[in-house]
Simulated scan of single mutants.
Amino acid sequence: MQTQTNPDYFDRLIDEKEAASYLCYSVRALQNWRVRGGGPHFIKVSGRSVRYTRRDLQKWIAAKRVANTGAEPTK
């Protein structure tokens, strides 16, 4: 298993199943975000093949961080 000590860990392309697991969301949620917007950046490898990087997933997570329930996530 690769760990964060591997320099390739955050930039290696991962499939939507692994990305969903990393985010603790369903694959269906990722698919919906790709259509509607609001999800993490993704790479469209071909017509039916989508990949993510952990770096993009981490950026998306950081943008959703708030200090309290009245705060808006950063854009």
Rank of each mutant, 00 (worst) to 15 (best):
L30W: 11
E72H: 13
G38C: 06
D56C: 01
T53Q: 12
R12Q: 15
K75W: 01
L57C: 05
N32D: 11
V45M: 04
A62V: 08
A62M: 14
R54I: 07
R51P: 13
D11A: 07
E18C: 04
R54F: 07
S49V: 15
L30K: 06
R54D: 04
L30D: 01
L13I: 01
A62H: 14
T69L: 12
R36Y: 11
Q2G: 09
A20P: 08
D15N: 11
R48M: 04
A62Y: 14
K59L: 15
R28S: 01
R34D: 02
P40G: 03
A71C: 15
L57W: 06
G37R: 03
I14R: 01
Y9Q: 00
V45L: 10
N6E: 12
K75N: 04
D11G: 04
N32S: 11
A67F: 09
A63H: 10
R12N: 14
R51E: 07
T5W: 10
W33K: 06
V27F: 05
G38K: 09
Q58Y: 09
T69M: 12
L57R: 05
Y22Q: 02
R51N: 12
R54T: 08
Y52I: 01
G47T: 10
Y9H: 05
M1Y: 11
R51Q: 13
R48F: 06
A71M: 14
E72T: 13
P40H: 01
V27A: 02
P73E: 08
Y25N: 06
K75L: 05
Y52V: 01
L57E: 08
K75H: 06
G37D: 04
P7F: 03
W60K: 11
Y52D: 01
E16G: 03
K59Q: 14
T74P: 11
S21W: 10
Q31V: 05
P7L: 02
T5L: 12
C24G: 08
G37F: 01
L13P: 04
Q31C: 12
V66H: 13
I43P: 13
S26M: 03
V35C: 00
T69N: 14
G47L: 10
T53N: 10
A63Y: 11
R36M: 10
A71I: 11
V66I: 15
A19N: 08
T74Y: 13
Y22G: 00
C24S: 13
N6G: 13
D15A: 02
R48T: 06
P73S: 06
P40I: 00
F42Y: 12
Y52T: 01
I43C: 15
D11W: 04
A63W: 08
T5A: 11
F42S: 07
P7Y: 06
G38E: 10
T5G: 06
D11R: 05
Q31D: 07
R55K: 07
E72K: 15
G37T: 07
A19R: 06
Q2V: 11
K64P: 00
A29W: 14
P40D: 00
R36W: 11
R36F: 10
A62F: 15
